[in-house]
Design a protein around this nucleic acid. Structure first.
Lengths: 255, 255
DNA sequence: CCATAGCGCGTATGGCATACGCAGAAGAGG
DNA sequence: CCTCTTCTGCGTATGCCATACGCGCTATGG
């Protein structure tokens, strides 16, 4: 009864925090959570998240499908662990830089990680983060905000806001990549998005959308700009606005 | 060759824009896209997006599974149409209110719609919006920004940013609802999130997270606050920051 | 009146996650 | 050394799922 709260965390998650004791009995395990997660990530990396099935992962490891369930209770658990793997270590905090530079760097680096693994935004999220690396990223962002006049709740809200910004930005890129994989059909649809939008929106009912379309805002996808989004316009704009808004709040408090 | 660009839009999407001519031949259709979408939405509403299958939709309509494919080319298409249905009509623009009040109202109303239909954030998005109501919401937001010193691209970025804010906020609520549906297991896990976070994070490696936990930031889920989030703290904070950031940018330009 | 286009749907295929149980491996305690 | 317990890999089976295909029918335009 003393440790009942210990027991209801998924076993593999507990393992990722290093909280499992091997009983030493029984046969030596032929696989490991780590190898399974790595294999699953490799599949997502090359063929997209949709290609990750228990049978495929097992086949790539030369094992049978059901043997995976000795290590992972369900596919959902595997997905949770997959989300934790590629984010690796968050950026170190530099004491010399202010909160703004710190958050900027944090958000940009998170975005780079997500861009390298676009399938991350496709994992259906089921609850707040509990895996180690996810928490470490949160720690890094919160650390950049220590010493600011924000309340704790506001700091967490800020981190959520920045994460949402990164995820939504990368989602646009993931769309393009998925489309490219699915075949030329969706790809063509995306490329002609601007044209379609113009066809469907008449000047009377959609003047504002038309203005944006005619200004060429949606032509990015038609050229290749979207495909190598090292420095993305949308993202930098959103990041700038959010940080400006934080700056305004802090100034109104400290001064 | 003149109309080739007309042909590669999914038929049901074209129908939702009112672009289909019925040929009048053949038997009378026993179903309609509208009824199918409504039935699918009803299922998502009551049992979650995961319960929406072609067979379930057909059964609820008293039809066979395959008959649905006469109206909808694929389940993905159905999902697209489902996303369009509940957002209905966006708020009307009020000429007397400024951009800030307009965007505030827009974001809050969008959030209310999403909160009423939390499954919306669970639909895997596959590309930019093309359905009529989605575009009308975009129009409404862009309209609130006409007359501001923002460039067209910046206006669109702003709308994307606000949508991301709404979606990420509602996603938290959707987690809770899904957990409640899945059974008491996940529900309990979510309720004890704060406790778990505290157990897993030691003071040395996670001082900032600990500070937030100890300040009670994550206790919301433990009480019922999260469940009736009519006015949510995170959301209003994020919205305020983004609008403040926009305000700063506009001031720096117009003055 | 009949060709044709649109309709409903039965059947079949190939995928998926995963429950269950068996057979064997290997350390633990006597 | 023996046996019991625990853990392993995995074959089999269940019940979902989306959807390709083709047949029989219907109603209308020519």
């Amino acid at each position: 009864m003393a440790e009942d709260s210990e027991l209801d965390l998924p076993a593999s998650i507990a393992a990722s925090w290093g909280l499992r004791e091997r009983s030493g009995k029984g046969p030596k395990p032929g696989l490991s959570i780590d190898r399974i997660v790595r294999a699953a990530v490799a599949i997502a990396e090359s063929d997209g998240l949709g290609a990750v099935s228990m049978s495929r992962v097992a086949a790539d490891l030369g094992a049978s499908t059901m043997s995976l369930y000795r290590y992972v209770a369900s596919k959902d658990e595997l997905l949770m662990l997959m989300m934790d793997a590629p984010v690796a270590k968050p950026p170190e905090s530099r004491p010399d830089e202010g909160w703004r530079a710190g958050l900027e760097r944090w958000a940009r680096e998170l975005r780079v990680v997500y861009l390298r693994h676009p399938w991350l935004v496709r994992v259906p999220i089921s609850g707040p983060p509990i895996t180690p690396n996810q928490i470490m990223w949160m720690e890094a962002a919160l650390r950049a905000l220590t010493g600011t006049p924000l309340e704790e709740g506001e700091k967490v809200s800020t981190v959520l806001l920045l994460s949402a910004l990164v995820r939504s930005d990368v989602a646009l890129f993931a769309d393009l990549q998925d489309a490219a994989r699915t075949g030329p059909y969706l790809q063509h649809l995306l490329r002609s998005y601007s044209r379609w939008l113009r066809t469907l929106t008449d000047e009377e009912r959609f003047p504002a959308v038309r203005a944006a379309v005619d200004a060429g805002v949606f032509d990015e996808a038609e050229n290749g700009v979207f495909v190598e989004p090292e420095e993305d316009y949308d993202f930098e704009f959103g990041l700038g606005r959010v940080l400006d808004g934080l700056d305004a709040l802090m100034r109104s408090r400290s001064g």
